[in-house]
Design a protein around this nucleic acid. Structure first.
Lengths: 155, 155
DNA sequence: CGTGAAAATGGGATTAA
DNA sequence: TTAATCCCATTTTCACG
């Protein structure tokens, strides 16, 4: 596993802010030829350090103005029951994020929904319909102060 | 505000999965000429429906294997105190996401950290050092089952 | 790592439907 | 008005020094 040098880190920081930058633009900003930038990017992609590239959409413009954070507590931790639950969560497009956690609850989900009615319907289907779910607690996001999947890139 | 047709929605779904697709590849998949794809993408960018494009990095490969979800309860909701708090949260690169919420707590933060020691240090600085923070509750993510900022695109 | 040439892609204009 | 074809500018990629 190749250790990242200063150039690589600079490139990662730029790409994480704007994945649409051309390799020549990156080259200018970090003082490298486009060929060198190309090589480094390709190598980091092959290494799995760069996992991909995605378009960022505005949820409000697509009719999903509401963000909800939901904590789910389960009844039994039986592996087959947990896996079935996970499958249900992951299959739901409105479940934007899903974490399996330690602590006072078992899952934390982040929902993107059209309105509260929409969420009520989803929670019926995902939570109330599942006898292995002991309970859930919903928090409504008044503002999304920071979103994105940005990873710190240290010097 | 232009209503999205079936082509636009198909394009959005593709780009959200892989922002690196060429316009001709998209054209093939949705049965459209590259020029048509180009115009639609540009229009959606201008509209703000497409907000940008970012590289997705693997946090583990960058030395950030731990994801934590933290609920913060504040003492006073005084606007100036809240804003100062927000500034501190947002300025911290290890705070990947930050939501201001209703419900049993006031903020939900998602951290990316190197290890627990790292988190302890950050929590000292962000939470214990702030007298307006009544308390916080930390959950450790055992698995990140679904991440990303994907927005549902309905038919 | 940089240079330069070749290949691929992006983006505009024109034409056809 | 909308999409397809063609064409040129830009970008990416590769071989070599």
């Amino acid at each position: 596993m190749p250790t990242l040098n200063t150039f690589d880190k600079q490139i990662l920081r730029l790409l994480q802010r704007d994945g649409g930058l051309s390799q020549s633009q990156i080259g200018e900003q970090v003082n490298l030829s486009t060929a060198a930038v190309n090589r480094r990017i390709k190598s980091m992609q092959a290494e799995g350090i760069i996992d991909g590239q995605v378009a960022v959409l505005d949820p409000r413009r697509l009719g999903y103005p509401l963000t909800l954070i939901v904590e789910v507590r389960v009844e039994s931790e039986r592996i087959d029951l947990l896996e079935e639950m996970q499958r249900n969560f992951l299959a739901c497009p409105q479940v934007q994020q899903c974490y399996y956690v330690t602590g006072e609850c078992d899952f934390v989900l982040i929902f993107l929904v059209r309105d509260m009615e929409h969420y009520v319907a989803l929670s019926q289907q995902l939570f109330h319909a599942n006898p292995n779910i002991r309970g859930f607690r919903t928090m409504v996001a008044m503002s999304r102060l920071k979103t994105g999947m940005t990873v710190p890139v240290d010097d």
